[in-house]
Amino acid sequence: MIRWLTEPVPRGRVAAFRTLVYLFVAADLVIFTPWVRTRVDVPGELYQPLLIGRLLPLPTPTPGLVAVVFWILLALALLAATGRAPRLLGWTVFALYFEWMIVAMSYGKVDHDRFALLVALAALPTAGRARHGDPTRSEAGGWAVRVTQIAVICTYFLAAWAKLRFGGPDWATGSVLARAIIRRGTDLADLIAQVPYLLIVAQFGILAFELLSPLVFRLPERWRHATIGFFYSFHLVTMATITISFAPHLVAMTSFLPLEKLRPLDRLRRRDPGTPVDEPGGQPSAAAGAELRPAPLHLHGGGSSTRPATAP
């Protein structure tokens, strides 16, 4: 079990995943959850903190507190995306984003699409330093990736458990998707809803998909990637029909992908435009070196000297 939890992964994968996660945190503040800043305008008695917020305990949010968290978190998330001070910046970003989420979810609605992202933010600081493109394998990095993957799959499986716990078997035969389409459906959803029994079949399919999701860990790598592609297509259809994006969850799900194959811009080094380069790291190739190497010049009398080779 320990070997599976700490299965080594390339440090380059950890670096790419870290950059992606921290960039999303910055984007989340300004694109997906800027409304959190407006929550503090409501009376304080409407703030009912989550259990963790009561245990710590955390203060009732004020405009000043939320503004400070917003601006510091935005700056530190962008800085952490560069890979600098992975532990110090990582833990700080996790703590601030955790507070941001507690404020967001303590007014009556709790989204479950951020669970895996929070796990990723908590685990990434433990992976230590990682450089983009580094093929060296790391057990610490493997643990951070694995626990994020587990959180992704738990999101699906526990969603099915909640459906059966609160709705029972009737959830699959009820009008859950029909109500969702009435509330927030798109034109595409309206077309789908006209097909007899299709929504019922879809509800059975969703339950089966969520309950069987843990099997992804038993699949060979090739089939696992194909299955993750199916997961993404499921969310694409969800977004196209009932406009639920699950963006934080989709970012965390990239932990299943070979992100080390990405070539980010920070790997590009400044090179002399006149130097032929066809090997990593900006080094001239053997052929180029042969063209630049001085060629011997034979003189009468048996001596030798050198002169630059003349290009043909």
Rank of each mutant, 00 (worst) to 15 (best):
F98E: 13
D278M: 06
R218S: 15
L259I: 06
A311D: 08
A178E: 15
A202T: 08
A26S: 11
G44M: 07
F217W: 13
R18E: 01
A252H: 00
P125T: 05
V152M: 13
P280I: 03
M101P: 02
T243L: 05
I52C: 03
I242T: 02
L55M: 14
T38G: 10
T82L: 14
L56F: 14
I2R: 07
M1T: 07
A81W: 03
S213F: 08
A202G: 11
E210G: 03
A162H: 08
G301R: 14
A159K: 02
W161E: 15
V195M: 13
L79A: 15
Y22M: 05
A290L: 12
A286L: 12
S245G: 01
L118V: 03
E45V: 01
L191Q: 12
V69N: 09
G12C: 06
G301Y: 10
W100R: 05
P34K: 07
W71D: 09
D28F: 06
H249S: 04
I72N: 02
F94W: 13
E139D: 01
L199N: 03
G168W: 11
V152F: 14
Y197V: 03
D272H: 11
P276S: 09
L215V: 13
H132D: 11
T82I: 11
A287Y: 07
A208R: 05
R307F: 02
T227D: 10
A226S: 01
R146L: 01
F246R: 02
L158C: 06
G12F: 09
D187G: 08
V237F: 14
A240R: 12
G141R: 00
